[in-house]
Amino acid sequence: MPAQRWRNLLVQALIAAGLLALLWWLLDATAANMRERGIRSGFDFLLEPAGFGIGESLLPFDSGDSALWALAAGLANTLRVALPAILISTLLGTLVGLGRLSPNLLLRKLCAAYVEALRNVPLLLQLLAWYFIVTDLLPAASKALQLAPHVFLSKSGLSVPWLGGDGGLIDLPQRGAMNISGGAAMTPEYLALLLGLSLYTAAFVAETVRAGIAAVPRGQSEAALALGLTRLQNFRLVLLPQALRGIIPPLTNQHLSLTKNASLAVAIGYPELVSVANTTLNQTGRAAECITLIMAVYLILSLLTAWLSAWLERRNGRWADHS
């Protein structure tokens, strides 16, 4: 149908032209608005000194460093909380998901209650509550609990010995005049965020795991048990490989939302990417640039994850076929 084809092409060309016109108009209008109002724009601010401090940072950061480095430190902080949270939520979620399939009624109900309670309350609210609990219950820094030699827990967070420091190989936390100094500190903001993200996401992971295992036909288990496999063997050799195929794609999504949800740290004062970008936005007034940067970084993270999970799925598919 050549006529149809030409029509399709024409329609698409019109759509493309319309879209380009709209985009051009939006960009041009914004640029004109900004020019007319005398607003500076551009990404030059990234190389200028940030001027503000970051309370805790994986990367060494000083207020004289560039804004770009501040954002990098923010991104590192995002990953610093997201990666452990992914690990914890996956482990805990798997346990809870298995618990929901347990023959034990109490365990089943307990796990179901956990999922119901955490899934149905906004994460932001949970984070605020965890932060309140952490800062309210722990003793002040001057009266820090000493859990082990050089391990302190207080409102200033959990301080543990770490490599490096001013003099020598190992940096030991010490009681200072005001608080604990030295070593590596996990601040209450970090602890609350880690706890909140892990527990919330675990509820979703549990559902994913339960659904994945429930989707494996019953006959598979029955056959395996009839063949004389133990329950553990049945689970490891029969159920798990089949269930994983249904679990991994939604699980990747959960991990991705966890990383995105880490941006809620802005409410409890943990300096991750969005929080640092927000501060930069304030200091420089470059709203468009800072928001674009946040979105671009997250998009790249998402695309990377999607690519990684597709690769895993392919590999897993091969592996499952072989076994």
């Binding site: 946040i294 979105m295 998009l299 998402s302 695309l303």
Partner: peptide, 11 residues
């Protein structure tokens, strides 16, 4: 779907 809601709200 790739970006967090908070960035859309900032936008």
């Amino acid at each position: 779907r790739g970006v967090p809601l908070i960035s859309v709200l900032f936008l």
